[in-house]
Design a protein around this nucleic acid. Sequence first.
DNA 1: GTCTATAGTAAGATAGAC
DNA 2: GTCTATCTTACTATAGAC
Lengths: 189, 189
Amino acid sequence: MANAKKIEDAELLQRLSTVFKNYGYEGASLTIMSVATGLKKPSLYHRFPNGKEQMASETLSFIRAWLAEHISVLLEEELPPQKRFANFIREMNGLYEGGNESCLLNMLTLPRHNASSLGKAISDIMMQLIFTLSTLAQTAGISKEWADHNAEQVLIELQGALVICRGLNNSAPFERMLQRLPTILFNEH
Amino acid sequence: MANAKKIEDAELLQRLSTVFKNYGYEGASLTIMSVATGLKKPSLYHRFPNGKEQMASETLSFIRAWLAEHISVLLEEELPPQKRFANFIREMNGLYEGGNESCLLNMLTLPRHNASSLGKAISDIMMQLIFTLSTLAQTAGISKEWADHNAEQVLIELQGALVICRGLNNSAPFERMLQRLPTILFNEH
DNA sequence: GTCTATAGTAAGATAGAC
DNA sequence: GTCTATCTTACTATAGAC
């Protein structure tokens, strides 16, 4: 006790996540992150000794944990697959604030062939999402081939809609995309 | 005559385009652009007096002109709509090198609510693409409502697939996406 | 754990010669 | 039109006090 109050890790990473989503890796300066978190730069280095790269890395881990808690659990619920996917869509709508927020997995991308640990984390999260969605589709009776294909398409639509919404400064494409997602995941032609 | 050779504008913008696609706006430093173009920084400022923002702006104009020449012309050809869309897909496959290149419209995005001229240019290009694709779909007999919806979805799939391919460091999702594009554009349920 | 103060570096941008 | 050399600023990062 006695010393200055420690900001909760979750709150800290939540705020860093917002900065990275809005500014990207290169655009997220320590000054911006200092303002966003209320911590001065030396305090940020106290929490993240390896600096900016560690801030990004831990932010990605934070998001991965959030997804594991809110998304992967969908597989275990005692609900019909279509209901579970409706819950997934609701979670995505909240995570991206109805299309008004960008995705970390896109904004934290570094130049190609940059063998940073961030790249592997991003790739891992994407593969985990595809695996989860494919499993859900297979639970609904979709063949493995189609389930894999459809799960990939769901992720593509999510990411693409966020790019378009940011470009057009209009969240309507995201809302329309969410509408058609169930048809996409459970499609078998 | 006599003075040092001037690099062609098209070649210059082509190389800047590659840098912006790979590094994004913030990540594209003048040093990187100097190396990529073979021009020292003062020479870049001679061509672009307003600096980096003008480089990005003119690069977007360059891409817009390229699209107008290679894409919008698809509307005028004397070919059945499906053939024209196949040509569009071929052009997109080349533009993004089979899924191995990112899209300028995504990589040049600045923080939200940044009222730069770049934002309007990106928005204009996206709307032009949607308009062109919707017109093509309507030529094939699709209703205006569905044509608009499908055109937007085509753009979403293109952008989303590029994000996923970069994240997974694998171009296969882009190839699969191109396969299903015709079904998407000419779909009326 | 957080801070003030500061180092060291790389960024965007210019002056002026050729 | 391009260059060498330089300016100013902003960035990432640290030292050391509280």
